[in-house]
Amino acid sequence: MVFIDGFNLYYGLKQKYGRRYHWLDLEALATSLLKPWQTLTGVKYFTARVRNDAGSLQRQSTYLDALGAHCANLEIIDGRFQEKVRGCRQCGSTWTGYEEKETDVSIAIALLEHGVTDDFDTAVIISGDSDLCPAVRALKRVCPDKEVVVAFPPARWSHDLKLAVLAAFPIGVAKLRQAQLPVEVITDDGHTLKRPGRWV
């Protein structure tokens, strides 16, 4: 079972490659990370709906709808963005920003829940966030027979997370290139979802 930290992956892709690989087929990517004898039991994608930009929200919604239509084994788990007042200490001005919440906790809970209910033998975490280390250690204590592997997104790395798991490796560009959704995805009700023009 593959657990994907959506924003960690998104910002890693953006930092390393711009928007070129944002139209990513997460189920195909997850499958490409497995060993030949392994079977994918599910993909859990943890994200949150953006709130600060209408264009970004539309692109994200199109992408999530395309994933839902194209990836049969994918579950999208929504967190949230919380308003946060930010300020400048020098000039005293303030503004409202947004902070993504709940992703780390949601991944931790899902990892433990699916481990306890024996839904996987090996968990693959796509993230470079060391905040997930306690969840990995907890799974080892509760389910010592379960294995955890980390696949680091582009431009993301955590020494602590690497030490906490059985194995860790970076996701190479070839896997990203080969795991792109079709340019157009047709939904069950016949709608056509197209790759956003800015994602090139």
Rank of each mutant, 00 (worst) to 15 (best):
D189P: 06
A164V: 04
L112A: 11
R156P: 08
K101I: 04
P144H: 02
R156D: 07
A110E: 15
T187I: 00
D160T: 13
S158A: 05
V149D: 04
A138L: 10
T103M: 07
L161Y: 06
S130R: 08
V148M: 06
L112E: 13
P153C: 01
K140N: 12
A123S: 04
V185N: 02
I109H: 03
W157D: 12
D188Y: 10
A123H: 01
A151H: 03
E184W: 10
P170A: 05
D188S: 14
A155C: 10
D129R: 01
D188M: 13
V136N: 05
I186V: 15
V173P: 07
L163P: 11
L181F: 06
I107E: 02
I126W: 08
D131F: 03
A108V: 00
D104S: 03
H159M: 12
G172R: 11
C133N: 10
W157Y: 15
I109C: 14
A155K: 09
T103F: 08
P134G: 01
V173H: 02
E113R: 12
C143L: 06
A168R: 02
D145I: 12
L166T: 14
S127N: 01
K175S: 11
V185A: 06
D189G: 07
V124M: 13
S158W: 05
T103K: 03
A151S: 08
V185R: 06
R177D: 11
C143V: 15
V124N: 07
A110P: 08
A167N: 12
H159R: 09
P134F: 05
D118L: 13
L161V: 04
R177A: 14
K140I: 08
A123D: 08
V124D: 09
C133F: 11
L112K: 07
Q178M: 09
P144Y: 03
A167E: 13
K175C: 02
R156Y: 06
F120C: 11
L132C: 03
D145K: 09
P153D: 01
V173Y: 01
C143Y: 06
S106A: 15
D121V: 10
A108K: 00
T187E: 07
D131E: 00
V149I: 12
P153L: 02
C143A: 11
K162N: 15
E102G: 08
K162D: 15
V148S: 08
G115V: 07
I109G: 13
L166D: 14
Q178C: 09
A168F: 03
E113K: 13
A138V: 11
